[in-house]
């Protein structure tokens, strides 16, 4: 079930081959939903589900899809899955789906999906494709959660909506950093994560430019 190669497929995307930090895919929707932890986690889970399922489906069909129309086939598969996720969220957690607004729909155009379908699912068996989907989805979710953690902690002083910065801090003049709630800070937080990540993995650094 979990041979050595499959393990690599599952765990490499978590850090060494992280879709967001290293391959720079899927930034589009990654950062817009990171003001609070809860929507970030829901978004991450939705991406994991869509990515794993679409990887398996495309992998099952990989021998029957003509190469010339594969992008359209992929888009249709992904769109159908995203619609299901969207309807599910609207039915079972309406508030979060309101917060995520258009970004659930935008999973369709998330570059991670297209990238993984093209690069992995089209040339691998269903089981490794499934693991690859879960791994990349998790890698995406980890980044989202880290960014959301710092933004919610520093920006609103809460985690999952519960206050964590004690009241006496505020009484002694501590203030929430309103800047962290603004969209540009998501980028700068992500840049700091990339900075730390690349300082620890020297081989990922870009030398020219």
């Amino acid at each position: 079930m979990l041979s050595k190669r499959n393990k690599e497929v599952l765990f490499n995307p978590l850090s060494k081959d992280n879709p967001v930090l290293v391959q720079i895919l899927g930034i589009c929707s990654a950062l817009a939903v990171t003001v609070k932890l809860e929507p970030a986690i829901v978004m991450g889970l939705s991406v994991i589900v869509v990515l794993a399922c679409s990887n398996v489906i495309i992998s099952l069909m990989r021998k029957t899809i003509p190469t010339s129309i594969r992008i359209i086939v992929q888009l249709v598969v992904v769109a159908a899955l995203v619609i299901m996720v969207q309807q599910f969220l609207q039915a079972f957690s309406y508030d979060v789906s309101k917060q995520l607004s258009v970004f659930v729909g935008l999973i369709i155009t998330n570059c991670i999906l297209m990238g993984r379908l093209e690069a992995f699912a089209l040339s691998n068996k269903p089981w490794p494709s499934f693991l690859d989907g879960v791994g990349n989805g998790l890698g995406y979710m980890i980044v989202l959660v880290i960014v959301a953690f710092f933004r919610e902690l520093l920006g609103s002083g809460t985690l999952f909506g519960l206050q964590v910065i004690p009241q006496w801090c505020y009484e002694h003049g501590y203030m929430n950093n309103g800047l962290m709630i603004l969209p540009p800070m998501a980028l700068i937080t992500a840049a700091c994560i990339i900075w730390v990540h690349r300082s620890r993995n020297k081989d990922l650094q870009e030398n020219n430019k």
Partner: peptide, 27 residues
Amino acid sequence: AYSNIPPALRGVGITFIITGLMGIAFM
């Protein structure tokens, strides 16, 4: 392209920060 950026920030990192700063300006 010719400035001296910390190696770990080169490429994507610095681009993110620039975009963030531009975003703050647009705010």
